[in-house]
Amino acid sequence: MFSDLKRIGLEACVLIAFGALFGLTLNHQLVVDAFSGQLVSPLRPATQESVPVALPLPVLIDEVQQVMASGGLIVDARNPELFAMGHIDGALSLALVDSDALLPDFLARISKDQVIVTYCSGFGCPDSFDLGVLLIELGYQDVRVFEGGYPEWRDAGLPVAGGSQ
């Protein structure tokens, strides 16, 4: 019975090792980039043929604060309802879903050399990145993405506005 369990445990370990090895073989570049501190773009690497020339650079929460302090613009890519429920204090709402309607006004008001940081509902939310790509395509020169988004900002206890927060 004991040797049976030992064998099962050993085989389970082999299974995990095999799976991990398989995964690392296919994704080693991603893991190496992540561990070497290079920020990894949330876009899938080189699968699309029409990748834009420049992609928005992902930034961490400290850098968002630095950008804010130096006069950069923080842009909320979430829909207006979520923005109303709570957003980063000082952020401008530019919902990706309404971008067609909102962008003409945005383009008229914000100069192309303005540093912009986009955010949405955190990791796994693609809107901030997509909006960042859109802004770069429209000619904005320094667009960055705060991947942690509103949840990370709020959970860090940093200033928020709107809603009952």
């Binding site: 095999f18 991990a20 995964g23």
Partner: peptide
């Protein structure tokens, strides 16, 4: 970085 390590290995272990 560990999030990427997990993401790079876990799906393959599940699949196998």
């Amino acid at each position: 970085a560990a999030n990427y390590l997990v993401a790079a290995t876990l799906p393959y272990i599940e699949f196998i």
